[in-house]
Design a protein around this nucleic acid. Structure first.
Lengths: 137, 137
DNA sequence: TTGGACCTTGACATCATGGGAATGTCAATG
DNA sequence: CATTGACATTCCCATGATGTCAAGGTCCAA
């Protein structure tokens, strides 16, 4: 299988396959005499693993750790669980931040009549004049 | 006020003040004869506006729009509300994505006993063998 | 006058990803 | 067999917001 087929089969773009190889996340692929990369079914499996981990939002260093654990038959699942739990905590934090933004903004938007008049609590808040709306209870 | 004071007063780093000027988000600051940037109280107000908008997660193009609206006394608040609502929708979408990731991962982590044994549903899922846990009802 | 704190510009790094150029290879078709 | 089109290779550049570092100029106080 060449890189294009591997990309289609794994969902990882050819560009990213080369990139992962370059940064050492993946071992260099085998080559034909002409220099084309050749991928085995096992390689595709690996690429899918990386793809799935990215879909779950793991960072590259985390993925590198997971890959190493995956390929270590004697790993303890505790180690994997630690990486996953760490990432859940990061996601929770990010979600909390975005939710706080969302709520603040939704409150402002609700207070804005949204008509032809120029008065706007959203801009007032951004300009630092909006404490009356969002910061006082 | 020079750039360091302006940075402290506005919460925008000196580096970012220069950057915003460079990309045209902010009008070039006045200069002393020696070439030092000089900031007025109005400039600080502007910088604070940008800072607050970044804190609310607006993108740079959105901030540019908001800035223009802020400085247009005849703007309709409807326009501002549209930008804000658009951003609330983006935040909602991002939150939904992250929450889906979080839940999928938390489910996997819960199913992982996390002990010394190598069996691990988290890795099994990443490897594409985990349908039994997360995808079948 | 000198030292230190500040300013200037510019270059480079991040992180994952995409785009494009220049060039080489493979397979099918005329 | 030669051409052609789809593919491959490597290398460079760009994103976006931000930081770091370097080399050099400026300002102020002792």
């Amino acid at each position: 299988m060449n890189i294009g087929e591997a990309a289609r089969a794994s969902g990882v773009s050819a560009k990213m396959i080369r990139h992962y190889e370059h940064i050492g996340l993946l071992r260099p692929a085998a080559r034909t005499e002409a220099g084309y990369r050749v991928f085995s079914a096992a390689d595709i499996h690996l690429l899918r693993f990386v793809r799935r981990a990215r879909d779950l939002g793991f960072s590259m260093p985390q993925i590198a750790r997971l890959l190493a654990l995956w390929q270590d038959r004697s790993r303890a699942s505790a180690e994997v669980k630690r990486v996953a739990s760490e990432h859940v905590a990061e996601l929770d934090q990010k979600i909390a931040e975005l939710t706080a933004m969302r709520d603040a903004l939704a409150t402002l938007a609700d207070a804005c009549c949204g008509d032809q008049r120029p008065d706007c609590p959203i801009l007032a808040d951004l300009a630092g004049e909006g404490a009356a709306i969002v910061e006082r209870p």
